[in-house]
Amino acid sequence: MSVLESIDLCIRFGGLQAATDVSIKVGELEIVGVIGPNGAGKTTTFNMITGFYTPTSGRVLFKGRDITELAVHERAALGMGRTFQNVGLVKGSTVRENLLTAQHLEVGYGVLSGMVGSPVSRAEERRLKERADAVLELMDLTHLASSKVQGLPYGDLKRVEIATVLATDPDIVLLDEPSSGMGPEESQELGDRLLRLRREMGLSILMIEHHVPLVTRVCDYVYCLSFGQLLAEGDPVAVRDNPVVVEAYLGVAAREQAEKEAREADAARAGVGA
């Protein structure tokens, strides 16, 4: 059974059809990539899946349950976490405080109990702090625990954001361009980390990503969106080399070039075969 599935999602903003029949599937422990040129509707699709936008038509299923009508925080409670393109963190707080905030749903005391500082709430706060520190260690961020989020470099922020989402204890995370602002080395490291997180935490991942080497290395399956529609899907390498995808990114000339190369390669192979 797939963890997450979107069925024919469509959304229209006034006269603009921003997404048409977007159907995406993420299986258990799968890492699925969403690629596509700017304005293709990738983040719009994320927003429909996580509940920020209500699709004009179509459904979203989470572990087989229809969640199309649920609010954002209700979806989070079911185990759906997400990051934001422009970094979704509480900037005035420290890194550790952000991870405490993220454990909102895990907190085992009531609002009133916290307001009077009951012994139960204090013990629980200690536990939350330990858990936050454990997640920070997992993401190699221990040295930043007491730093204010505001002022951290962009690459660090992206990692802190992933740590924050992990602290919500999700079953699936939707990452919106996790490698943006990272150099090749950092993004290599991010790839290793994502593979490790899947293994150790049993995560499924759906990610919007532009960095092709990262996508081909970690993704099991890739969808390509263009102008709000699915253009191609399948194995990452196959999607990358698909002439239609190349055209969407680079234009017609590039597509013709790619097709020519493909023909030549076929001819060469045929030649070898004969």
Binding site: T50, G51, F52, A71, V72, H73, A76, G81, R82, F84, G88, L89, V90, K91, G92, S93, E97, L100, T101, A102, H104, L105, V107, Y109, V111, G114, M115, G117, S121, E125, T164, T168
Partner: peptide
Amino acid sequence: SKAGRALLALRENPRVAASL
């Protein structure tokens, strides 16, 4: 406590707060 952190998060960014 949890409520205070929730308030700070939703003031600064209600979208992020909801996603948490």
